[in-house]
Design a binder for these strands. Structure first.
Length: 327
DNA sequence: GGGCCCGCAGGG
DNA sequence: CCCTGCGGGCCC
């Protein structure tokens, strides 16, 4: 039995994947090998899902090797957008830093925010109360910030001028967006690393309702998005001007190209296409297809099996890729 | 672990 | 000034 929500989600994903495949013809996509295969605790036998409904292009399979999993997204039918918060999960966690580094990366890439003051952290982002020395309102790379730079939180990312807002996913100016953060807030977005779809902002009841007023920073989708919205208009402009956009991937994204912890600068992309489509929950959303500019360091790939010292996290993470087969 | 609500930076 | 935003910390 597949719920209407799940059906819609899979349809949207498939549509977005097809679009990305059409845009990605001939695109070179070097990736870094994941760090050594990790051991997973032998717990209860798990059903491995074989994906059929969202086939990847040959090109993608070549890159991903034997991994042909669908994006790891939340599959809850009841409260999908509330199940991704885990900001305090690192409290007291001890991580072996050396094992978190990928060989061959231009800068050490961490897979865990257990890293404190690591050499891969942004120059200012690791220092409390540091003052910004570069202007985030510019297009292209920020001087001194290498692709692969990692921050524990978005505060550091902002201090290093890569993405200014602490909360919003889109930042920009008259010629288009300067930077975006992939944060996994939209379940039908597809991330193939060198290409990804991105959903605009707006259409959320941040103030709550009249009877129950709130002052939230994020909230579930409750109305249509449109291109008149400031940030959505910026990204549409980006599609016209082809100005480069800094892209940061955050741990909340379930993509295999996203860090499992913290936030990582993944370099410059352009917006190839902008359109409006029905999102999940019936509301229209603004969608964008991003494409990575060539000549940048390869993208790291998240290790498949994460060796968590605490088992509850391990189980929880793994369950997100399980699902009843819809056959 | 979930709900609440805060500061902050940016855009208009 | 105002309002907004795919954070995050605190309290429960």
């Amino acid at each position: 039995m597949v719920s209407a929500y799940e059906k819609r989600r899979l349809e949207n994903i498939k549509k977005n994947q097809e679009l990305l495949a059409s845009l990605g013809f001939g695109l070179d996509r070097p990736t870094l090998e994941p760090i050594e295969k990790r051991h997973k605790k032998p717990s209860a036998p798990r059903k491995r899902k074989i994906e059929h409904e969202s086939p990847l292009s040959e090109e993608e399979e070549e890159v991903q090797g034997a991994e042909t999993k669908a994006p790891r997204v939340q599959l809850s039918d009841t409260a999908p957008e509330s199940a991704v918060r885990r900001s305090s999960r690192n409290a007291g966690k001890v991580v072996d830093y050396n094992k978190e580094i990928i060989k061959g990366s231009p800068v050490p890439v961490a897979y865990s925010s257990g890293v404190k003051n690591a050499e891969n952290a942004g120059p200012l982002g690791s220092e409390a109360g540091s003052k910004r020395i570069h202007d985030p309102k510019q297009y292209g790379h920020i001087p001194g910030i290498e692709v692969g730079t990692w921050w524990e939180s978005r505060q550091g990312c902002s201090a290093d001028a890569v993405h200014a807002p602490w909360v919003g996913g889109i930042s920009g100016g008259a010629q288009g967006a300067h930077s975006v953060v992939i944060s996994g807030g939209y379940e039908d977005d597809v991330d193939d690393g060198y290409l990804f779809t991105y959903t605009g902002s707006g259409g959320r009841a941040l103030k709550g309702t009249k009877s129950a007023p709130k002052n939230l920073r994020t909230a579930p989708q409750s109305s249509d998005q449109n291109f008149e919205h400031t940030f959505n208009r910026m990204l549409k402009k980006s599609c016209e001007t082809k100005k480069p956009i800094r892209v940061v991937r955050g741990f909340k994204s379930q993509s295999k190209y996203a860090p499992s912890e913290g936030y990582r600068y993944d370099g410059l992309y352009i917006v190839e296409k902008a359109w409006i489509e029905p999102g999940l929950k019936e509301y229209l959303v603004c969608k964008y297809a991003f494409k990575r500019l060539p000549g940048q360091p390869p993208l790291p790939v998240r290790a498949t099996d994460i060796d968590e010292t605490s088992e509850e996290d391990n189980v929880k993470e793994d369950e997100t890729i399980e699902n009843e087969d819809n056959n």
